[in-house]
Amino acid sequence: MHVPDGFLDAPTSVATGVVAAAGIAVALRKARGELDDRTAPMAGLVAAFVFAGQMINFPVGAGTSGHLLGGALAAVLVGPWTGMLCLSVVLLVQALFMADGGITALGTNITLMGVVGCFVGYAVFRLALLVLPRRLGSVAPAAAVGALVSVPAAATVFTLLFVIGGNAPIDTGAVLTAMLGWHVVIGVGEAVVTGLVVGSVVAVRPDLVHGAQRLVQARTLEVRPSGLAAPARAGEVA
């Protein structure tokens, strides 16, 4: 999904650069609300994990591969604004040191994988949580659904950008069909990885998962009545 230099013309690259810069400026303020002494180190680890995950290309058939984008994963684990900053750091390091994704295309890549990946992933995650039963076990499946949708969403936005400012003539329908087709399959891989990772963290420390916070609070509220009846229960246990 890393867009190289040259795909998009200068005006389009400048426009996505502005979108990315504005997104980062807002995220630097909003992420403050998601980060505290406990979650800040976690967020650094999430960024590092996304970088590592993006190195693992998995085959999706017919000589094509895909890899984790990590937007939905990061958004669910540490919040969408912090997640967007995670992806921005990953994409910056990749562009500067690994020559993965172009330099003039950095804004495009942050827009696609950071902004679209995190926020579409997180929005779909929230919608899925509304439909699923209100318990912690729903967090991982909801995150997987968000991840599944986030990949073709980013592929669609790329196609739109190419229609507006691509440096080569294309058959829009053919490109959109091919991009959507392959990225739905890659999205399945994204969903599996995201579901497994979020499920693992929810299993051991749900209180550290941003997307599970409301459910954790609901659970502690449910527990309190039994806490009031503590003397009786303590007697049973003893």
């Binding site: 890393h2 190195m55 094509t64 591969s65 895909g66 330099i103 053919a174 091919a178």
Partner: peptide, 26 residues
Amino acid sequence: ASSHPDGLEYVADRTGFLDSAEDSAT
């Protein structure tokens, strides 16, 4: 990891816009 082109690179090749890619400055 698979060394096959990723989804975007593959589609770019098949639909004829891969050649517009330029080497990164890095």
